[in-house]
């Protein structure tokens, strides 16, 4: 049978965080649907999307949780950090305040995810060059100082969006390869699906409590 879309070997969980209106939902939509949503309503709580990508010949399913940036949802969205393998932290290059809040977002991300979570900084709305309020250089420096990966993207034109999501996945995959990410640990944010066919009757697996022998 041809390899269908479900035949992936890993699931990576992502979370997208950042102030309201920075374009988190648009980035997710651009990545999963390759379309720009011009009038996207504010996210209520959390939403999620998925897409299968390929990294080093491995099919990986990304399960991406898009959080609401509004302060009133903070208590709710904080609960979704756990178990994220990747965190995309977004600010809006045309609104300095969203950049200024990054350190608080970063603190949350560091405290609430696991130590191996890959944090990727995204400066969104790069298409609005004329309204730029945060330079590339200072954001790059912030990213370097905090050991974050960084790209400026545009959810509108799709510029760099693919790369941000893929680079995060590559980094996570690399962490798995060099053993720094332990897949067996619960809530690593990565789930492994063994691709090799299994023994049909797995004798070493104790039968589940259902005693039915129909």
């Amino acid at each position: 049978m041809a390899a269908g879309p479900y035949n992936y070997s890993y699931i990576f969980k992502y979370i997208i965080i950042g102030d309201m209106g920075v374009g988190k939902s648009c980035l997710l939509h651009q990545f999963t649907e390759k379309k720009f949503m011009a009038d996207c309503p504010h996210t209520i709580g959390v939403e999620f999307g998925t897409r299968i990508i390929e990294v080093s010949g491995q099919k990986i399913k990304l399960q991406i949780w898009d959080t609401a940036g509004q302060e009133r949802f903070r208590a709710v969205t904080r609960s979704y950090y756990r178990g994220a393998a990747g965190a995309l932290m977004v600010y809006d290059i045309t609104r300095r305040s969203t950049y200024n809040h990054l350190s608080s977002w970063l603190t949350d991300a560091r405290n609430l995810t696991n130590p191996n979570t890959v944090i990727f900084l995204i400066g969104n709305k790069s298409d609005l060059e004329a309204q730029r309020d945060v330079t590339y250089e200072e954001a790059k420096q912030f990213a370097d100082e905090n050991g974050l990966m960084f790209l400026e993207c545009s959810a509108k034109t799709g510029d760099n969006v693919e790369d941000a999501f893929l680079d995060t996945a590559k980094k996570i995959y690399q962490n798995i390869q060099d053993g720094s990410l332990d897949l067996n640990a619960a809530e690593s944010g990565v789930q492994h699906k063994p691709a090799t066919p299994r023994n049909p009757i797995n004798t070493d697996q104790a039968p589940i409590d259902k005693g039915c022998a129909c």
Binding site: V46, A75, V76, R78, S79, Y80, Y81, R82, G83, L112, T113, N114, P115, N116, L181, D182, A185, A186, E187, S188
Partner: peptide, 28 residues
């Protein structure tokens, strides 16, 4: 158990903070 090396911390560690405790369970 929580995450690898205890991060994120097990949800029950926050049982003294009812909102966080219940919220984490619901999000999970």
């Amino acid at each position: 158990r929580g995450g690898p090396g205890g991060t994120p911390r097990p949800i029950e560690l926050h049982s003294h903070d009812p909102l966080r405790y219940v919220g984490d369970m619901l999000a999970w």
